[in-house]
């Protein structure tokens, strides 16, 4: 179980809270949807889970251990898949995978096998020798995911992984996420596409202004409505930046 307990975080001491007492439980092996309008605190939450920032208050535990302690024994166990194309456009797909596997300190043989697995998982074999900068949007998203898988992680933090891709690529990515969870992995999935979250997430948390508004199994949260309706009901109709 991943437990986020009473997390508080401000980007600046005088600024508004990005997270204001967030508590969420994420079951291992589940796909947990994290919903919220722009500026709700989703990316901050992912940053805390990825270890990029430390909460000012509260704590994160995984399987009963504090995040830092758990992570120090498993440095590659959490992979963040950012919204941006966080790789090197001048390197080929293969070279990108080898680089990110290398910086995780994987030995040569392991590195090769992991890169081959990630390449196959993301169906990128055909473009393995193509420069990443020349790939289409869908292929770039798949490479972004493949890079995250090179360290054989237990937990995937996906930040809007399907932005700007066609239906085929989106379905492929959603299926890949399902497969990852079926193989025992845990996924925290943020998206603005409600139908995606409904389709893949077993549980959801809706947050806004740094607070959890509603959390639970997807079916319970919906209660006969669409997720979109629940979301708008909770977060309102006013425009966000």
């Amino acid at each position: 179980m991943i437990r986020l307990e009473n997390l508080r975080y401000r980007h600046r001491p005088e600024g508004p809270p990005a997270l204001d007492g967030v508590s969420i439980n994420i079951a291992r092996g589940s796909i947990h949807g994290l919903l919220g309008p722009n500026g709700a605190g989703k990316t901050t939450l992912i940053s805390l889970l990825a270890g990029l920032q430390a909460p000012r208050e509260g704590r994160i535990t995984i399987d009963g251990e504090l995040l830092d302690v758990w992570r120090s024994a498993r440095p590659n166990a959490i992979a963040q898949i950012p919204q941006d194309y966080a790789f090197y456009p001048m390197l080929t797909v293969d070279e990108n995978l080898a680089f990110f596997a290398g910086v995780q300190g994987l030995p040569r043989r392991k590195r090769k096998s992991q890169c081959a697995k990630a390449l196959a998982f993301s169906c990128l074999e055909a473009v393995a020798n193509q420069q990443a900068g020349e790939l289409s949007g869908g292929l770039r998203r798949r490479l972004n995911l493949a890079i995250g898988l090179t360290g054989e992680p237990d937990i995937l933090l996906l930040d809007e992984p399907t932005v700007g891709v066609d239906s085929q690529s989106r379905n492929f990515l959603l299926e890949a996420v399902r497969q990852f969870a079926l193989s025992g992995g845990t996924v925290l999935y943020t998206s603005h596409y409600m139908e995606e979250v409904e389709a893949v997430c077993s549980d959801v948390s809706i947050i806004d202004h740094g607070k959890v508004l509603l959390a639970g199994p997807t079916a319970e949260v919906k209660r006969g409505r669409t997720l979109e309706q629940v979301f708008v009901e909770l977060t309102g109709h006013s425009l966000r930046d």
Partner: peptide, 17 residues
């Protein structure tokens, strides 16, 4: 700057680099 703008540096930090 490409690494910073595309979130690659952040990704590397998340990978404990």
């Amino acid at each position: 700057i490409g690494e910073r703008q595309h979130g690659t540096l952040q990704r590397l930090r998340a990978q404990r680099v």
